[in-house]
Amino acid sequence: MSSTYHLTTPLSSEDTKQLVAGDTVYLTGVLFTARDAAHKRLVELIEKGEALPFDLEGSVIYFVGPTPPKPGDPIGSAGPTTSYRMDSFSPTMLKHGSRGMIGKGKRNQAVKDACVAYDGIYFGATGGAGALLGKLIKSAEVIAYPELGPEAVRRLEVVDFPVAVINDTHGNDLYQQGREQYEVKA
């Protein structure tokens, strides 16, 4: 039976280990945005042993490429992008302290294994709910790589940002298990 949690970032191992695929979580606090190009740069810094533009410990990374903000708004519509493009980078991020990712769509086995090994969670946000999710972002500040435009790393402050647990620290996968539960075999 799925549960509902309200968690505040940064996330601890205690926070993540209690979660099970299918749970609903409302996140409050700071999220960092990064897509393909930013991930490549962050992982390069980690491999060189250099400092990152933000503290990875307990961090939650949001895979998003928002629409331009209207004047006066912190951000435009901001729903998740497809996550598999980050699969080659995510295990390194988790190994070095990041504890959550938010996106949409399936991850590969290496990412699922890294969630188990490093107490990480892959959260699914609702794709196409860009207006709703954008509204829950109270502030957005570019903190690295402004030259990447929509792909720059942003520090977002969110309140009750709704996500579902897709891959948990126990090796469960909601995409697989949820589908099996409702599939009608011929």
């Binding site: 299918g22 519509s77 709910a129 207006a131 709703l132 909601l174």
Partner: peptide
């Protein structure tokens, strides 16, 4: 039938209401 999926669709309807009322793009992929 699934409570998780039901909640997702509920968010989509809320999203449509917000987008319409506040003239925000429904999705960032326009």
């Amino acid at each position: 039938q699934s409570p998780v999926a039901k909640n997702v669709i509920k968010q989509l309807l809320e999203n449509a209401d917000i987008a319409k009322d506040e003239k925000r793009p429904l999705c960032q992929d326009t």
